[in-house]
């Protein structure tokens, strides 16, 4: 098995190795993590014929510059970045044959926020509790799976089995204004009538406070009473909680597992991937999911 090395000449804004995360350890305070736009991550692997939960590179807003020391096949999905391979534009959602000593260079995202890169080789990286996804905070755990140092190397060995590339039709929606479906959260009733009207009746801007843990929205919503701190209780990805200042916060895969703010709504799973493609300044509308309409 020959070695394949990728050298990150530039890391990009926030580049990490992700798979579909580690559900089931929330009781110990471990967030699920995993690719924020899991659909695009799965599709990147599908293009190359890899398993859907195989690791991928998650690339955020400003992409990396990568030197491929050896030849390997890759695929790109998700956000639309200008990407060149040795100076020539490359296309998303198809197999790209990268020759040895090539440079793959990403620019700034033109549409969407996160791109995914699958690699048709065996990643030589660590897993913890069943996932390669790094913990998105202070811990040393899987820190090497965050690409945060220029010159960082990621090693692979050649893939043993032959892979059959697959065609991919449905792509993630990259509109900067999105409508997503929500189900009422467990504290939905704490919103005032006015609060409910603004929640469903207008577009909410994504603020600069946007990370893998969550997106803060610019809107201020009112509660029925001033008392909005509660005894801490479980929170799940997709939850929209209301901060003490009244700003809704969409919690994402790296969010804490417990919190003390009202959970006013939860974005349904099928629509959560598209949130990951919104960037600061983009807008989101909420509507009630059909299944919960009565």
């Amino acid at each position: 098995m020959a070695d394949i090395t990728l050298e990150f000449i530039k890391t990009g804004l926030y580049t990490s190795i992700q798979d579909l995360g580690r559900a089931g350890h929330e009781a110990s305070g471990v967030p699920k993590s995993g690719a924020l736009d899991s659909r695009s991550a799965r599709l990147a692997n599908k293009v190359l014929g890899l398993e859907k939960d195989y690791p991928v590179l998650e690339i955020t807003l400003a992409g990396p510059e990568i030197l491929f020391h050896q030849a390997v096949d890759i695929a790109l999905t998700g956000a639309k970045f200008p990407v060149t391979l040795n100076g020539k534009d490359v296309k998303r959602y198809q197999k790209i044959k990268v020759p040895a000593n090539s440079i793959l260079k990403f620019g700034y995202a033109k549409r969407g926020c996160r791109a995914y890169m699958a690699v048709a080789a065996e990643w030589k990286i660590e897993k913890w509790l069943g996932s390669v996804s790094p913990l998105g905070f202070g811990s040393h755990k899987l820190k090497e799976n965050i690409i945060n140092q220029n010159g960082q190397l990621v090693h692979f060995s050649t893939y043993n089995e032959s892979l059959e590339a697959q065609e991919v039709k449905k792509r993630i929606n990259l509109n900067p204004i999105k409508r997503v479906r929500v189900a009422p959260g467990s504290e939905f009733d704490m919103l005032s009538k006015e609060g409910v009207a603004s929640f469903f009746g207008k577009a909410h801007s994504i603020t600069q406070e946007a990370s893998r843990m969550g997106y803060k929205l610019a809107t201020e919503l009112k509660l029925e009473s001033n008392q909005n701190e509660m005894i801490s209780s479980g929170i799940l990805p997709g939850t929209i909680q209301l901060s003490s200042a009244g700003n809704p916060i969409i919690l994402l895969a790296d969010a804490q597992t417990v919190g003390g703010y009202p959970r006013i709504a939860r974005i349904i799973d099928q629509d959560l991937d598209s949130i990951a493609q919104l960037k600061p300044g983009d807008k989101v509308w909420f509507s009630l999911a059909d299944t919960v309409r009565k």
Binding site: A23, I231, S232, S233, G234, I235
Partner: peptide, 11 residues
């Protein structure tokens, strides 16, 4: 699929 026990609640 998962559970989050807290002070006086179970998610």
């Amino acid at each position: 699929t998962s559970m989050i026990p807290a002070y006086c609640s179970l998610t």
